[in-house]
Amino acid sequence: MVSEVSAPPKSASLVGALVGNNQIVLVAALVVICVGISLAVPQFYSSANIIAILRQVAMVLIVACGMTMLLITAEVDLSVGASLAFVGVVAMDVINVTDSVFLGALAGIAFGALVGLVNGLIVTRLKVNSLIATIGTMMILQGGVFLYSREAIQNHHHLPSFVDIGAGYVGPVPIPVIVAAVIFIASYVVLRHTTLGRYLFAVGANEKTARLSGLRTTWLKLFAFVLTGALVGVAGLILGSLMNAGQPTAGRGFELTVIAAVILGGTSLSGGRGTLIGTLLGVFVLKVIDDGIIVLQWNQDLQMIVPGVVLIAAIYLDILRRRADAR
């Protein structure tokens, strides 16, 4: 359901009306979770905690914006977690060599984009299924980052401006949140209001149709891969900055969190369907749950279980809703 761009679908039945729209379900879930947690732990609403949540959301959201577009074109990238770690290491190394945060950041983003380009070329030129292709590049990156540097690369020059990328503030707002907001809004506008966005939907909905209509399908898919890669670069910088180091072991499982959030937001794995608002909500649901588990002082290992359950439950509901609609 492209409800972000199409008129709201009419819900024919009671079930359809109840779970009429994936996003409404997510908003409701979010409200229930927030209220539930805050009843138990009032300091959930403390500004410190809210900022902590936002910072967590920011990291995932940045990459999820790219991943949403990629899934809309009916491709997927599982290498984002491995790339995330590598980006931090590369950026830190370049900073140490050049003594320039700008060059380091540039190198990090360029590295991420390069990974995206390689993924995209393997998928579009060699016609390798993107799931398999990016499992391959994930392995290459996971191994490669250790071959590059066995240990974490520290911020040798102790440049404070690098730390600011992840830990700094503009007024009360953390810099990563601002970065994420800018990226989100830009992505939203592109997907919703531009020809590029519409073409991404077209390629994912039916690649042959898109090509017969004169679209450059290969180029469009490459764009989505490179964009996702570059956004991994941005997120990798933030992560590196928060740790003030390039940590080769960082980012394990990050790809799964990102994909879970995007799918939770209603984007289809088979392409042509998806919304960024949904993705935003998906990221929030997962990260608020994460945070709730911490403030409730539950066992943090629940942070792995809950997203899995939420993900499957959400898709289940979506299927129920679609069946109700079809009736």
């Binding site: 799964l256 792995m304 279980i305 899995g308 993900l311 289940y316 299927i319």
Partner: peptide, 23 residues
Amino acid sequence: YVGINSLIVTLGMLFILRGGVYL
């Protein structure tokens, strides 16, 4: 039977089981 994409189902299961093990 439900018809959820098996990649999603087993991805979710991967999370759930690993989390369960840690827990």
